[in-house]
Simulated assay, not measured.
Amino acid sequence: MNAKHQPATAAGTFRLGADLPVVRLGFGTMQLTGPGVWGDPRDPDEAVRVLRRAVDLGVNLIDTADSYGPVVAEPLIKKALHPYPEDLVIATKAGLTRPGPDRWLPVGRPEYLRQQAEMSLRHLGLDRIDLFQLHRIDPKVPLEEQLGELQLLQQEGKIRHIGLSEVSIEDVERATKTAPIVSVQNLFNLADRKAEPLLEYATDHGIGFIPWFPLATGKLSLADGPLAGLARQLGTTPSQLALAWLLKRSSAVLPIPGTSSVKHLEENVEAAGITLSDTEFEALSQAV
């Protein structure tokens, strides 16, 4: 299937760990679960259609976590896409437990992280997870112990690459003393750029930067939002502009917009084909 029928590929590729190519516009699965990222989706059949359509459109990076549901998103991926295309990269995470809807508590004990990695392998139907991310650093457990267990799993062939989530530059530098880090995943979008220094660091060091909430949980997609005027001028949608801005911001940025709707998915993926001029990029940067 060529790029015309796979619009996501227009975003170009990035190599995680220098050896794992991914299309830069990926898909995040958090919104495939119930309210509060808790329980099953309202429409399980549509969730399956969304995942299959994402791959049809050229997306080959699917981001998920054991805690989405919990244990909802990973089995959905397996149901929709297994046996997997050869080039599909599934990135999952462990290190956050779920005592209830919208509640997240870090647990980084080595035995827990190993258990969750083994469970993710089972739920996804994989022999090896291409990218396994520490969902949060547990302040009660030495970072070296948390990453040391992931490195053991890596040496056993159960994890290919290791990533981190919601970290600082100092965290990354400390982590790399224990294990190679190929990606970081932090809150970042046009409306919230506090992670700019980390993005610069990741770009300079060849580390993939995965911005979560790339559309600011929908605030940047509003028809009367801050991007609406520019979107009308350019003949796009606000959400497409927000994603195009991220893709232009750095070649290391790997946005993973999520949705439970095929229609919204298709709209988001079209952002890969939008090339912003420097002037348009600056106008967007100033608009929010």
Rank of each mutant, 00 (worst) to 15 (best):
I62Y: 08
H135R: 06
I162A: 00
T33V: 07
L126W: 09
D278W: 08
Q155L: 14
A8K: 12
L51W: 10
N2W: 05
V72N: 03
V72L: 04
G34L: 04
L222F: 06
D40N: 09
V262H: 11
K219D: 08
F209N: 03
Y68V: 06
D127M: 08
Q31N: 14
W104C: 01
G34W: 11
I62N: 02
R42E: 13
G26N: 09
D224A: 11
R160S: 13
T176E: 15
L88W: 09
L81S: 03
A191K: 11
K194S: 13
L20S: 01
A283N: 13
L227S: 02
D102Y: 14
Q233T: 12
Q133P: 01
S261R: 15
T203F: 03
L16M: 03
S239L: 08
F213L: 08
L199T: 07
L124S: 00
L227R: 07
P139F: 12
R98N: 10
P21C: 05
Q155Y: 09
A244L: 04
L164H: 01
G163Q: 01
P257H: 07
G34M: 02
L247E: 10
E266F: 06
G58S: 09
I129G: 00
S261P: 00
P101L: 02
T178D: 03
V71Y: 05
Q115R: 15
A47C: 11
H264W: 07
M119A: 15
R232S: 14
V37S: 11
L190P: 04
K78G: 08
G69K: 07
E111D: 15
I256R: 01
R103D: 01
H82P: 01
T236V: 13
T217Y: 13
A65G: 12
T237N: 11
V23I: 14
G100C: 02
L61E: 10
S251E: 14
A47L: 01
V269L: 02
A179Y: 11
K263M: 03
P180E: 10
T279W: 02
H82T: 01
A8N: 12
H135I: 05
D278Y: 01
S165A: 12
E86K: 11
M119V: 15
Q240D: 02
R103W: 06
A11I: 10
A175C: 08
K194H: 15
S250A: 15
D19Q: 12
G95K: 00
G218A: 00
G229N: 13
L222Y: 01
V141S: 07
E266K: 05
Q155C: 00
A80S: 07
S67D: 08
P255V: 04
S165C: 13
R24K: 14
H135V: 03
G218F: 13
T29N: 07
R136I: 01
L143G: 09
